[in-house]
């Protein structure tokens, strides 16, 4: 049996593809933005950094587990690094949380609170870009994107559509369809899987609630309700029913 010592605890492992999976299997909560086990490893968000016994800090998602490794997941150095990384992510992120659709369920918000980021010292110097509301279902707000690439990989690797990708470079980098086309002019099928993986409010589902209320109260309309299968699935999911 092969072992890794995580936080002074011996944890056995077999053929996990990376150190992060071993850590999570040990029941340690190491939150990430860009890591999804079913997608390729991208290593962008750096939230999964760990420290080894020689003080070396590295991303556990991009590290192969080796027998005899000694690592720590929550040293003061790591706490400092994670907090700073998150502060930098928040610096160029639209922080109008109260009016954001993801308010309360946002992974970025949750982690910022968890890691105690109560002040962002850096100014947002990023150019503010318009929202793409052209699609019937998907709304993209580039100002809330943290460039984790989850949507890019999901669209390409899982759905095989590949509508979204990164464009440009460095601080000008953004996630967009080819040639910055509006979503309505792409091959997007509206599956919404990009929304499922997006850790912020950058990709949301278009809300038609107001339009529906108007129709419900329209005296000239007879209202018939039909519930889509997806709703039953979602409710079942919440109660852990497969």
């Amino acid at each position: 049996m092969k072992y890794i010592t995580i936080n002074n605890r011996k944890v056995p492992f077999e053929d996990e593809k990376n150190l992060l999976s071993v850590i999570r299997k040990a029941g340690i909560d190491l939150p990430t933005f860009c890591y999804h086990s079913e997608l390729s490893t991208y290593g962008a968000c750096r939230m999964c950094v760990v420290e080894d016994d020689r003080g070396r800090v590295f991303a556990s998602c991009s590290e192969t587990p080796r027998d005899g490794m000694v690592i720590y997941t929550n040293t003061p150095k790591l706490q400092h690094h994670r907090k700073l990384i998150l502060e930098l992510l928040l610096a160029s992120h639209c922080r109008d949380c109260t009016t954001c659709r993801e308010n309360g369920v946002c992974t970025l918000q949750k982690l910022a609170r968890q890691l105690g980021v109560d002040d962002v010292r850096f100014q947002n110097t990023k150019e503010q870009l318009p929202k793409d509301t052209s699609s019937n279902c998907i709304v993209i707000d580039p100002n809330k994107c943290i460039l984790c690439g989850d949507c890019v990989r999901t669209c390409e690797e899982i759905q095989g559509v590949g509508v979204l990708n990164f464009a440009h470079r460095g601080s000008n980098m953004r996630v967009t369809p080819a040639f910055g086309k509006p979503m309505s002019e792409t091959d997007c099928v509206g599956c919404g899987q990009c929304r499922v993986v997006c850790p912020t409010g950058a990709i949301t589902i278009k809300s038609n609630v107001h339009a529906v209320w108007d129709l419900v109260y329209d005296k000239t309309k007879r209202v018939v309700v039909q519930i889509a299968p997806a709703v039953r699935v979602a409710i079942g999911d919440k109660f852990g029913i497969p």
Partner: peptide, 8 residues
């Protein structure tokens, strides 16, 4: 490859 990837 996808158009988006080439554009990237």
């Amino acid at each position: 490859i996808t158009e988006a990837k080439a554009y990237s």
